[in-house]
């Protein structure tokens, strides 16, 4: 990362911490914000956050590693989380999973080489009456079938980029594809 980028990141984080109240309880919202904008929480970010909040970086790591929506590893622009819990299981999530793997050419837990998609399992998404359900970033899809998997991926590739995040401005800060 370039020095100027680092400085920008630091300034961003400082602004966020202030907004969330400058104390320890700001930690998770700040990490969530970084995760949202940059797709992961790097060691550098953990160090910066620790400095600003006057806590040990290990504490930040301990918290970041606890939550499954906060990640240390760079993930794809689109994180697909398929529900594996009972009701979706009974409604055929296995076949949806297989088709996702086929269409993306990766297994669960992996990211496509172009850095666009990460495939993960999730526990119950609260859509059990309309399973199988999956989340793409913050967007929910229900009653997914092996057949509609392709459409969902296409939607991500074309239109959906704009809606994938809440604020449009954050789009420019999306992680650039990993080489």
């Amino acid at each position: 990362m370039l020095v100027s980028e680092r400085e920008q990141l630091r300034a961003n984080i400082e602004r966020q911490v202030k907004e969330f109240g400058n104390d320890r309880s700001a930690l998770i919202p700040v990490l969530q914000d970084v995760q949202h904008k940059y797709g992961h929480v790097s060691e550098y970010v953990m160090q910066v956050v620790a400095d600003i909040l006057h806590i040990h970086p290990v504490e930040v790591y301990g918290v970041a590693s606890f939550y499954s929506f906060i990640g240390h590893k760079q993930k794809g622009r689109f994180i697909i989380r398929l529900c594996r819990t009972i009701s979706c299981d009974m409604q055929g999530k296995d076949r949806v999973a297989r088709q996702l793997e086929n269409d993306l050419g990766i297994q669960f837990g992996e990211t496509t080489p172009d850095g666009n998609f990460t495939l993960e399992w999730a526990n119950c998404l609260g859509m059990c009456d309309q399973g199988p359900a999956l989340l793409v970033n913050e967007r929910i899809y229900t009653k997914v079938t092996p057949e509609t998997v392709h459409d969902i991926l296409e939607e991500c590739r074309t239109l959906f980029g704009v809606y994938a995040l809440q604020e449009k401005e954050t789009l420019c800060e999306l992680p650039t594809p990993v080489k």
């Binding site: 606890f66 499954s68 929506f69």
Partner: peptide, 21 residues
């Protein structure tokens, strides 16, 4: 942030305070 255990009320409070849930 994706942790079921944070529904338990004391874990929820830990999480609000910026701790592991």
């Amino acid at each position: 942030a994706g942790a079921y255990i944070c529904g338990e009320e004391t874990a929820l409070i830990e999480s609000l305070e910026g701790q592991r849930g």
